[in-house]
Amino acid sequence: PPRPPPKPGPGEHPLQYNYSYWFSRRTPGKQTTSYDQNLKLVASFASVEQFWMYYSHLVRPGDLSGHSDYHLFKDGIRPMWEDSANKSGGKWIIRLKKGLASRCWENLVLAMLGEQFMVGEEICGAVVSIRYQEDILALWNRTAYDQVTTSRIRDTLKRVLNLPPNTIMEYKTHTDSIKDNSSF
């Protein structure tokens, strides 16, 4: 059923866009549910204060167990390749050593909510993926072939994430991810 869009409360600081927070987890063993079915909407919000209210109650990504993902996407964009906002897009992928996910995710989220990327409508959302050996951040944008935009996003990511100098950043189009079936 359609949800009413969230609205900033009195005195709150509105965000440029409304966002939705999603969670997914792959259960061990045979996969009987689709990616779509695993995706759970946690909350939608329209202001800085609403974001903190939800965020402060969520388990930090670095403290999640198993094969789990948080997805923070602009309201109206599902965190899936098939969504019309994503189908010509791609993502920057940053692999993190264990222990960095919570801090880096917060820095990424604050930069996105605060409109620090300065690429117009290009940003779709961000994902943090908790895995066994390493954790992975991804920032999705609409237009994979737009190199001016993807370079600008990379430069801002480097600035806001404050990553170790040897961190590798990789850009991948969603079309390529579909072809090689890589979904982490």
Binding site: H13, Q16, V48, S56, G114
Partner: peptide
């Protein structure tokens, strides 16, 4: 139109605002 740009330190300040509680 004007974009609503917030830097990290401002967003962190809002975390402690009474409105967030």
């Amino acid at each position: 139109g004007t974009r609503l740009i917030y830097d990290r330190s401002f967003l962190l300040e809002c975390r402690n605002s009474p409105l967030t509680k």
